[in-house]
Design a binder for these strands. Structure first.
Length: 394
DNA sequence: TGTTGTCAAGCAGAG
DNA sequence: CTCTGCTTGACAACA
């Protein structure tokens, strides 16, 4: 689907998936799982090699991108996961920040096991930030899974045990002028009519705040959440959201909170009034706005940026694109692997989070498209052949 | 090593 | 009603 993939010369061995037509998986069936039609078929071509084949050197090719120009001067970032570091081989070398476990495992191994996962996640975050710096990326979203179950009603735990390590993350980010933000998940419902749901949302936000506070991150370290559900009455839900923000959230949590327009329930014009009245910034998401439009983009952006300005927070926005060939609303919600271009109305001085399956590769592609930063040959496309998106077909 | 089913949490929309 | 999608991934069990 993504032209990108077509250009890639994959590492020499491309394996065909066995395709065991066994049990029906409960997930979607619509992904024929082999999109390796990129010409990497020489895979099976060497059946008779007796000397144990030395590890094949992958062939890295940087495909051409269509060149474009921009006056954009902000940072581009990616969310949570670095595909190169996540897929390092051997498996013991992988670097990622979302180690987690099951509830059963907590019962089995105890909470200290879980807290150790958090330590490993934070250690790896240091590595990722170093990688980012080496590759001219200075903006990323921290995984909400950094500390598994930290906000859980029964198993939750404070993060102070990890304070020194978290402080190192903040110091490193500061050293590189690297912005770190968070995006608590879809279960974070500030406007639910159910008390327990709100309580869980507040715990989740407190956890994220605690993490950022212990890192010593400044006010640019925001936490982005959506409006959430409407429960059949949007006005009433908005009132509850407003009440939660104004009267329930502790000040340090509220200080980091920002709202984001979504593609189903709350458009930018739904959120702007409460954002403006509470001085909660609005993160504008171009993709969501395209699916759930309201006011003219330029108006949304200028009003949103005014809130950021008043709060002294560097503005940020989200960019993603729908999968190619998406027809229905549901299909269009899915993110594409890359972003082909920056939006028309993108202000120059702005941090832009790229939400794409290929993560940092999508950022690097935009770097190349617009000549924003040099891209190191070898970090591009190193593993695209095995990245999840590579197997996605439209 | 890879594959497969399942996993903390909430909601809305499609079929 | 069930399945899907959301920041979408990762664990666990087994081959």
């Amino acid at each position: 689907m993504d032209e990108d993939s077509d250009d890639i010369v994959a590492p020499k061995k491309v394996k065909r998936k066995p395709k065991p037509q066994g049990k029906k998986r409960k997930g979607s069936q619509l992904k024929p799982d082999d999109a390796a039609e990129d010409g990497g078929e020489e895979a099976t071509a060497s059946p008779r090699k007796k000397k144990r084949a030395p590890k094949l050197e992958p062939v890295y090719v940087i495909p051409d991108v269509e060149k474009r120009t921009t006056t954009f001067k902000g940072r581009l970032g990616y969310a949570c996961l670095n595909t190169i570091l996540r897929n390092k081989k051997p498996a013991t070398d992988v670097v990622f920040c979302s180690r987690t476990c099951r509830l059963d495992t907590i019962k089995e191994k105890g909470i200290d096991f879980v807290k150790d996962l958090g330590v490993k996640n934070v250690e790896d975050l240091l590595t990722i930030i170093e990688w980012n710096e080496a590759n001219n990326i200075r903006f990323m979203r921290i995984s909400s899974d950094m500390f598994p179950f930290a906000s859980h009603s029964l198993h939750g735990y404070p993060l102070d045990y990890c304070a020194p390590l978290l402080a190192r993350v903040g110091e490193l980010a500061l050293k590189y002028n690297h912005r770190l933000t968070t995006h608590p998940g879809q279960y974070t419902q500030l406007g639910s009519p159910k008390k327990e749901v709100i309580a869980a949302a507040v715990r989740e936000l407190k956890y994220h705040s605690e993490m950022l506070d212990l890192m010593g991150i400044d006010k640019d370290g925001v936490m982005i959440v959506h409006g959430g559900g409407v429960y059949g009455d949007k006005e009433a839900a908005l009132e509850r959201i407003k009440d939660t923000i104004a009267n329930v959230l502790p000040q340090n949590v509220r200080d980091r909170l920002v709202l984001e327009n979504d593609e189903i329930c709350y458009s930018a014009s739904d959120l702007l009034p409460i954002c403006e009245s509470l001085l909660i910034p609005l993160v504008f998401d171009y993709h969501h706005d395209a699916l759930n439009p309201s006011l003219p983009r330029t108006e949304i952006i200028s009003r949103a940026n005014e809130i950021f300005r008043k709060r002294g927070i560097k503005p940020k926005q989200h960019l993603s694109e729908a999968r190619e060939g998406a027809e229905t609303l549901m299909e269009k919600r899915k993110h594409s692997a890359r972003c082909k271009m920056l939006p028309e109305d993108l202000p120059d001085d702005m941090d832009l989070m790229i939400e794409a399956k290929d993560k940092e590769q999508a950022v690097l592609q935009l770097y190349r498209t617009y000549d924003l930063h040099p891209v190191i040959h070898g970090t591009v496309l190193v593993l695209v052949a095995s990245s999840p998106s590579f197997n996605l077909t439209p």
